[in-house]
Design a protein around this nucleic acid. Sequence first.
DNA 1: TTATTATGTGAATAATAATTCACATAAGGG
DNA 2: CCCTTATGTGAATTATTATTCACATAATAA
Lengths: 200, 200
Amino acid sequence: MSFEKLNTEIRQEQIAGAALSIISDAGLKGLNIAGIARRVGIVPSAVYRHFKNKDEVLDAVLDLIQENLFENVKKACEKTPDASERLRHLLMLHINLVVGNRSIPRIIFSEDLYSGHPERQKKVYSDIITAYLKKVAEIVRLGQRDRQIRSDLDPDTVSVMFLGIIQPAGILWHMSEGQFDAIRHVETAWKIFKESIQFR
Amino acid sequence: MSFEKLNTEIRQEQIAGAALSIISDAGLKGLNIAGIARRVGIVPSAVYRHFKNKDEVLDAVLDLIQENLFENVKKACEKTPDASERLRHLLMLHINLVVGNRSIPRIIFSEDLYSGHPERQKKVYSDIITAYLKKVAEIVRLGQRDRQIRSDLDPDTVSVMFLGIIQPAGILWHMSEGQFDAIRHVETAWKIFKESIQFR
DNA sequence: TTATTATGTGAATAATAATTCACATAAGGG
DNA sequence: CCCTTATGTGAATTATTATTCACATAATAA
């Protein structure tokens, strides 16, 4: 029997990536250590050389998702200085992330992830969701400063409403197995929303 | 050992109700046959006298949720003939349902419910979600006919946007364990949204 | 080259839960 | 009142998975 040894950093990345990929395909319930090991090309028990337990694997997956989301914000801000354009760009990046990689809603809104792990729920809420909303709100705030967005609106409310354009679209797309045209909805809804927040 | 025998209809209701209640408290993952049996006051195996298996219990729970949602639409429509008022009323009924009974998002968006059950996913999508959205769209359409709502908007888009006010609020409320003020958000967001859809 | 250590293997363990089954008993019709 | 049957019981069965462990081996440094 011959096999390859890789150092733990590489394996950790492989394992987290495999887990993310499995979740995209089969959901959290479809994720088990044996499946991860199979994809990585090792034996189940070998996973435990690189992660203490399954929970730590899940934490690594959450980190991957967080990176994706924050990267989108950065991209959108680099693309243009106009608040409205930034939001539109971010909207499209986000919905494409959701549509192209079904794992995000499958993980973030999964009970499994949190039941028996209040600390993880707290972490996801504050480090991922709230942090993301804060960044969106900051874009809004800058837009208000520059007289691109109505200044009588609360940036935090606007950022949650922004999420409200994406989230149902993502869920409907997911539940309908692609039948619901999430991207079209987001584009149409954005026009209406944009009108209602723009400076006048 | 003395015990009471009840007919299967009553037991089915009790079991479905107990299941819904457990899901509200502990999520789908916290739901097991033993827990249901304990609440109802019978032994786990007795559950199988009234339901073929756990899946059928879940289907019964879904029916309960569907009833709740549709009842809200009816209430809102009976309350007032004004489309905008109907939507506002429905919005508050819905968010209160979500906040008062955490089971709805916990179930509808739970992977567990669907993994390995594509037919159930299809049913929830078409019989619950889409059907609900259709009813909302119908309210919008009537509002357009009566010149209460802008007629250049697609009713289906508006209905999904309507959902977009509630859904993130519900999820944030849930994830933050009540810290996020969902009702306040819904009220604020509604004002902005209402303005953007009203006839002018 | 050799010794050390991190990584990999396969088998065993343990916990959780759904489901089945043989047997018991309450309820209601005849 | 009896007897049939639906309902209830407790124990056993089965399946699934995470996790551990003793042992093996590749990589690396001395």
